[in-house]
Amino acid sequence: MGLIILLVVGGVVGWLAGLIMRDNNGVILNVVVGIVGAILAGFIVTPLIGGAPITSGIISIESIAVSLLGAIVLLAIINLFRRGTVR
């Protein structure tokens, strides 16, 4: 069940990150970036703030916010390498 939640929330977060960054990489790349960003941010940032990561299957406002932040940062890094600018 946790994997399904991770995929759904990561996909939505990646889509939102693409909208926030005004990115034209495509929906598939944004969804993948959202999933990877959610995983990385869940393992790195969430223990620092004391919440449950999205990988545990618990959906909370802080886990979604951390996942969105991770997806935005990862999308900015990808844009930096692909275009030379963050936008």
Results as ranks from 00 to 15, higher is better:
residue 84 G to M: 07
residue 87 R to L: 12
residue 74 L to A: 02
residue 40 L to G: 03
residue 87 R to N: 10
residue 84 G to H: 05
residue 19 L to Q: 13
residue 35 I to V: 15
residue 13 V to H: 02
residue 27 V to T: 15
residue 41 A to T: 03
residue 86 V to H: 10
residue 38 A to V: 02
residue 21 M to E: 15
residue 37 G to V: 08
residue 62 E to A: 10
residue 82 R to V: 12
residue 39 I to V: 13
residue 63 S to V: 02
residue 62 E to Y: 12
residue 63 S to Y: 01
residue 33 V to G: 00
residue 11 G to Y: 02
residue 78 I to A: 05
residue 61 I to G: 04
residue 72 I to T: 07
residue 87 R to A: 10
residue 67 S to G: 12
residue 85 T to F: 15
residue 81 F to D: 06
residue 40 L to C: 03
residue 57 G to I: 02
residue 64 I to G: 06
residue 10 G to L: 07
residue 78 I to L: 13
residue 28 I to V: 15
residue 71 A to E: 04
residue 50 G to A: 06
residue 23 D to C: 09
residue 58 I to V: 09
residue 63 S to W: 00
residue 21 M to P: 00
residue 53 P to T: 00
residue 13 V to D: 06
residue 72 I to Q: 04
residue 65 A to S: 10
residue 87 R to H: 07
residue 72 I to K: 06
residue 36 V to W: 12
residue 21 M to K: 15
residue 64 I to K: 06
residue 47 P to Y: 04
residue 85 T to E: 13
residue 87 R to P: 00
residue 54 I to F: 09
residue 64 I to W: 06
residue 61 I to E: 09
residue 68 L to N: 07
residue 44 I to C: 00
residue 77 I to C: 04
residue 52 A to M: 03
residue 53 P to C: 01
residue 62 E to L: 12
residue 79 N to H: 09
residue 61 I to V: 15
residue 31 V to A: 08
residue 27 V to D: 14
residue 49 I to K: 11
residue 53 P to Y: 00
residue 48 L to D: 02
residue 78 I to G: 02
residue 10 G to P: 09
residue 34 G to V: 06
residue 43 F to E: 06
residue 57 G to V: 02
residue 12 V to N: 05
residue 70 G to C: 01
residue 20 I to Q: 13
residue 21 M to R: 15
residue 80 L to Q: 03
residue 84 G to Y: 07
residue 84 G to E: 07
residue 42 G to R: 03
residue 13 V to K: 09
residue 66 V to H: 03
residue 73 V to N: 01
residue 26 G to Q: 11
residue 54 I to N: 03
residue 14 G to C: 05
residue 40 L to V: 07
residue 26 G to R: 09
residue 52 A to W: 03
residue 77 I to L: 11
residue 35 I to S: 05
residue 22 R to V: 10
residue 83 R to Y: 14
residue 81 F to I: 11
residue 31 V to G: 03
residue 18 G to F: 04
residue 80 L to N: 00
residue 28 I to A: 15
residue 60 S to Y: 01
residue 74 L to R: 06
residue 71 A to V: 06
residue 78 I to K: 10
residue 43 F to Y: 08
residue 64 I to V: 15
residue 82 R to N: 12
residue 85 T to Y: 14
residue 18 G to C: 12
residue 10 G to W: 01
residue 46 T to H: 00
residue 81 F to Y: 13
residue 56 S to N: 08
residue 66 V to C: 08
residue 24 N to F: 13
residue 78 I to H: 04
residue 17 A to T: 11
residue 37 G to R: 08
residue 28 I to M: 14
residue 80 L to A: 08
residue 46 T to E: 10
residue 52 A to F: 04
residue 61 I to A: 14
residue 26 G to K: 11
residue 76 A to V: 12
residue 21 M to T: 15
residue 54 I to R: 10
residue 25 N to I: 11
residue 71 A to D: 07
residue 37 G to A: 01
residue 17 A to P: 00
residue 24 N to Y: 13
residue 14 G to Q: 10
residue 51 G to T: 04
residue 57 G to L: 05
residue 66 V to Q: 07
residue 85 T to K: 14
residue 19 L to S: 09
residue 11 G to Q: 07
residue 60 S to A: 08
residue 21 M to D: 14
residue 84 G to L: 08
residue 45 V to D: 01
residue 18 G to S: 14
residue 23 D to A: 10
residue 75 L to S: 11
residue 45 V to I: 14
residue 31 V to E: 09
residue 48 L to A: 12
residue 47 P to Q: 08
residue 76 A to I: 13
residue 13 V to N: 07
residue 49 I to V: 15
residue 36 V to Y: 12
residue 43 F to G: 03
